[in-house]
């Protein structure tokens, strides 16, 4: 094991897989000399050269379309979209090209493509502070991964690059500098489609992913200490395909559930998750499923406003206390 930051873990996965597989190429905006907007790809162009680490024009739809074509031509492209907000410009290529080809053309070929992008906020204003994982997760044909820890970031990215299907890999800007133990073994995958029970508990289940995992873990500590409530914390890790069995099994023991996300309350990822779980676990539930989510407001610039709108551990604690 080695202690790495989330950023180093992502970079490590890219580097290891590029060493292992000559077909892997990276492409994105300012990912070479600049090193990437969040410095993830720093040093890679020096090591692998500009044919494998491609500086692209600022053209998100073109980048993803190009990557789809490169994948069809036999390469394993990893396209970086600077933030998930800019991924909107590439939605057509993600939804109508990458996600459709295998099915629509009768299984004749697949699109082994990874789109790496970033959610997050930090006084960036309404156009740069959004979460769209629910949109991607609603599309059959895509796999959607959203790791919370350095170990998962590395292992899931390796799995994503090796997967024959298009994978949307969403990192979180506020996690890049977090640290964690990462296995040393080269090429060790974390399987796509498997949630992790990160903390065991008996009284209530907190389902979370990405940055909200850290908030849920903090909330669980507070609730244990102050209220004597034992929380089980699940990290979804993959949002599509979604590991319902792990959640159903947990709720079967705890009988209470809070779904925690940074997504908007209306139509967000947590909304469909909640709907499915109340269907699957209705008989096990002792209380309505609670949800912590972003209020239906564009996230404003001002620190004072941002602070009260971003969901965090306090909202989770409040939600649990309201249920008891």
């Amino acid at each position: 094991m080695a202690e790495l930051t989330y950023r180093e873990a992502v970079r490590g996965a890219l580097r290891e897989e590029m060493l292992r597989d000559q077909r892997v190429i990276l492409m994105g905006e300012s990912i070479t000399g600049y090193g990437g907007s969040y410095a993830v790809t720093k040093g890679l162009v020096e090591e692998f050269g500009p044919k494998r680490v491609m500086e692209t024009p600022i053209a998100e739809a073109g980048i993803v379309g190009f990557a789809v074509g490169a994948a069809m031509g036999g390469l394993r492209p990893v396209a970086e979209l600077m933030t998930v907000n800019f991924a909107l410009l590439a939605l057509d290529q993600i939804v109508n090209s990458a996600a459709k080809f295998h099915y629509m053309f009768g299984g004749q070929w697949s699109v082994p493509l990874v789109v790496r992008t970033v959610s997050g906020f930090g006084q960036l204003g309404p156009t740069h502070s959004q979460t769209f994982e629910g949109w991607f997760a609603s599309v059959p044909g895509l796999k959607v991964v959203m790791p919370a820890t350095p170990a998962d970031a590395k292992g899931l990215l390796l799995a994503a690059i090796r997967d024959p299907d298009p994978v949307i890999f969403i990192e979180h800007s506020l996690l890049y500098s977090t640290k964690g133990q990462v296995p040393d073994d080269d090429g060790l995958e974390v399987p796509i489609g498997r949630a992790a029970v990160v903390r065991e508990g008996d009284d209530i289940t907190l389902v979370s992913y990405s940055r909200m995992l850290l908030q849920a873990l903090h909330a669980a500590e507070v609730l244990e200490r102050e209220d004597g409530v034992s929380c089980e914390v699940i990290d979804l890790r993959t949002l599509r395909p979604l590991d319902y069995p792990t959640m159903v099994r947990s709720v079967g023991r705890t009988h209470r559930l809070v779904v925690c996300g940074e997504d908007w309350r209306t139509g967000g990822f947590g909304a469909s998750l909640l709907s499915e779980l109340q269907d699957r676990s209705f008989d096990d539930l002792d209380a309505p499923i609670a949800r912590v989510a972003m209020r239906d407001i564009p996230l404003p610039y001002s620190r004072r406003l941002e602070q009260v709108l971003i969901p965090g551990s306090q909202q989770i604690v409040d939600a649990v206390r309201r249920m008891s």
């Binding site: 379309g65 074509g69 031509g73 390469l75 109508n96």
Partner: peptide, 19 residues
Amino acid sequence: IVGSHIPIGAGMAYAMQYL
């Protein structure tokens, strides 16, 4: 989707060049 395959063709051409 009108025009969507234009960069896809460019990407395939890149794969040919690369390989």
